[in-house]
């Protein structure tokens, strides 16, 4: 059970049950849809961006606990950040969960995202943890269409 508790940390369970920024933004400046065919996770992401600053961000949809918690935590992290800052955080997080960092990596530097450390032991669940972030990047790049993790 110990690994399981590491995957489903209390923070993750809390966010999945009571997600932050879980609503639709009317008149969003950016919007994207994220889809994970493996789990059937499916989210819509809404953003209000002004002069490179993410003023507001929200999401709606259905997914597993990991993907929902990740979307919730992501929205609370990037709100008020610039696009450049958000992109930097995503890259760091992505490198960490996909195992592209070495032993010297300081996990605390991930801040709130450190709760996803358990995901690194579950390769099939990495997609759940990164779906919201991929969707964010897509929305910011203003690509049309659906992001899938496949």
């Amino acid at each position: 059970m110990s690994d399981l508790r590491e995957l489903y940390q209390e923070v993750i369970l809390d966010h999945s049950k009571h997600p932050k920024n879980y609503h639709k933004i009317e008149n969003a400046s950016h919007q994207a849809e994220g889809f994970n065919p493996l789990c059937g996770d499916h989210f819509n992401l809404y953003l209000k961006v002004k002069e490179g600053l993410i003023e507001d961000v929200s999401f709606e949809g259905a997914g597993c606990a990991i993907s929902k918690a990740s979307a919730s935590i992501m929205t609370s992290i990037v709100k008020g950040k610039t696009i450049a800052e958000a992109t930097k955080i995503f890259k760091k997080f992505h490198e960490y969960v996909t195992g592209k960092v070495d032993q010297s990596f300081d996990i605390d530097s991930l801040g709130k995202l450190a709760v996803f450390s358990g995901v690194t032991e579950f390769p099939v669940r990495v997609k759940c943890a990164t779906l919201a972030w991929h969707t964010l990047m897509n929305a910011l790049e203003n690509k049309i269409g659906i992001v899938t993790t496949e």
Partner: peptide, 13 residues
Amino acid sequence: NIHPHDIGTVLDY
């Protein structure tokens, strides 16, 4: 309120 994928992961344990 529980996604099937989470069910599968817990049962795997």
